[in-house]
Structures are given as structure tokens and as C-alpha cells.
Design a protein around this nucleic acid. Structure first.
Lengths: 108, 108
DNA sequence: TGCTTCCATCGTCACAAAACGATAAAGAAA
DNA sequence: TTTCTTTATCGTTTTGTGACGATGGAAGCA
């Protein structure tokens, strides 16, 4: 997972409503559709659908059509992956590394 | 660390340039000023200063005036805190809980 | 065949974010 | 004092985001 991917995932998760949506979806693992989420929030259905799309595009959740409804599910694999990447990235920030590697010296 | 704080931190880190700035700052722990960062990036000084402010407001970095320059430093304590909070939050998303309870909170 | 439900998408609006140049304050250096 | 360096902030422009209502297509039910 590269820096840009981490940033993209961070941005997808960087909204209180989306974090809450993620929590809601996770608690109804098997059958959580857009309306279920909407019922839990004081937002319009279109707004919730949009947030779901953001999470979907970021790979945080997955969609599965079932008749007329769409079931959403948390992609725990991706979240684990993300969590590990964040830990690794932040862990590197303490000790010295090779930064500014666009052809510049490490430190002064 | 509460959900909104996590979201705020995520949003601050949810930009490729800011992740790179963070990395640059971390490698020059003791004396990293705005110009140092600007030299590493192809962005205007005012733009870099703005990004630094975002990171500063989110508590990701700290500022320390030294003469006419401002030294920035990574707040590893906050990042560790954030990392732990993210891990705890994402870890909760696997097992089942009681959904849609806006008034109940297991832990913080 | 209708009728209903689900929901992604479109169009729109208001506001936030990202980038820039210009500026001014404040310390260092001459 | 005068000049230079550093850099936060202002004003502006462009682009993005979040929210909404409305719409239409697809599946299920009458």
C-alpha cells in the first residue's frame, strides 16, 4: 500500500458520517442496505448513497445486489491492510529515514 | 479519542502532500522550517504554510519559534494515540454489536 | 399489466479546500 | 538604520465536497 493509497483511504474515512456509516454497516454484516443506514441517520437517502459510494470507491466496503436491494458489507481485509500500512507509516516517522528523496540531502 | 477526533485527524492526513510534508518534517526532527519543506516540494511557500497549519491544527505537528524561523516537529505522542485509536476502532468493526444506537458507547 | 419499493444517478446550491501571488511583521545581519 | 530572510496571513480563483430533491431503471408484488 503506497502513500497515495493511504491518503485516499484516510480521506474516505475522514468524515464523521462515513465513520458512523461504517459502524452501522459492520453491525449488520449480512443484510445491510442503503435504507437501513438511512433510517439510522438524519440524512437524505441520496446523501447516504453518495457516502456509501465514497466508501465503496475507496474499497472500504463492498456491494452485493440481492433482488431490488443492495447489500453492503465491510471489507475487513482492506481495513486490516490499511491499519497495518498506517502503523508502518507512522512507525517510520519517529526514527530517521531517507526523506526529501527527490535528489536532496537528508539533513542539515 | 472520539470518533470525530479520529475523523478530523484522518482528514488532516488524507492528502498526499501533507503525508509527504509529515515525512519531510520527521526526517529533520530538530530544525525543520517552512522553507526547508518548500524546497523539497514544487509548491509555493504560502501553500506549504497552509498545509503546515492544517497539520498543526490537527495536532499532528508542533511549532516552535526560533528567531525568525519556525521549527516544526512531529508530535509522535499524538500519532501513537491516533494509531491506537484507529486500531481499536477498526478492530471493533469485525464482531457484532447493537446497531443504530446513537446513545450507547462501549469505550473511548 | 400495473403498482410499489429500492436506490444509484443527475442537477443544483452553498460552502470548503487547494493553489497562487502579494503583503506585512519580526528577527537577523549589514 | 537599512536591508535581508522567514513566514503567516490576506485576497482571489478554481476545483471539490456535502447536502438536497427529483428522476428513472430494475426487481418484486398485486
Amino acid at each position: 500500500m503506497h502513500e497515495d493509497d493511504i491518503a485516499a483511504m484516510m480521506r474516505a474515512l475522514g468524515h464523521p458520517v462515513r465513520l458512523e456509516i461504517l459502524r452501522i454497516v459492520s453491525t449488520r454484516s449480512e443484510n445491510c442496505c442503503c435504507n437501513d443506514v438511512t433510517d439510522c441517520l438524519s440524512l437524505a437517502q441520496s446523501t447516504v448513497s453518495q457516502h456509501l459510494k465514497v466508501l465503496l470507491d475507496a474499497g472500504v466496503i463492498e456491494r452485493q445486489a440481492q433482488g431490488t436491494r443492495n447489500n453492503y458489507r465491510v471489507r475487513t481485509d482492506r481495513l486490516d491492510q490499511f491499519n497495518a500500512a498506517v502503523g508502518a507509516y507512522l512507525g517510520k516517522l519517529g526514527p530517521s529515514a531517507s526523506a526529501c528523496d527527490r535528489g536532496l540531502q537528508p539533513a542539515s
